[in-house]
């Protein structure tokens, strides 16, 4: 499996990362080197082997269904790059 420039463009869009046009080709090369190297994993016989879901045997325990947090509008907005009237501000979505 080898990535071309168009695939890198598509992944970058999925990842929401702006990549300049002239950076796509070199990036494809770098990513292909890494993917080519991890390709060796296909040598491992994993027939009937379950995928790892947790490295420590543990049961998820439940807490009581009670509100323990909230009502912190000011704290939450304190780090916002732009806020207005208790909301985060984003560019216009609907014309």
């Amino acid at each position: 499996m080898s990535l071309d420039k168009e695939t890198v463009r598509k992944i970058a869009t999925l990842a929401r990362i702006k990549v300049d046009e002239d950076a796509l080709e070199p990036l494809a090369g770098e990513l292909n080197n890494i993917l080519g190297w991890v390709e060796q994993l296909s040598e491992v016989d994993t027939e009937g082997v379950p995928p790892m879901t947790s490295v420590v045997a543990t049961e998820a325990y439940q807490r009581p269904d009670r509100v323990t947090d909230g009502d912190k509008v000011e704290e939450i907005l304190a780090n916002a790059p732009e806020e207005a009237q208790g909301f985060f501000v984003v560019p216009k979505v609907i014309e």
Partner: peptide, 11 residues
Amino acid sequence: YYLQAQKVRTR
């Protein structure tokens, strides 16, 4: 890729 890697991790 991902599923195979997680199986290798089990190994």
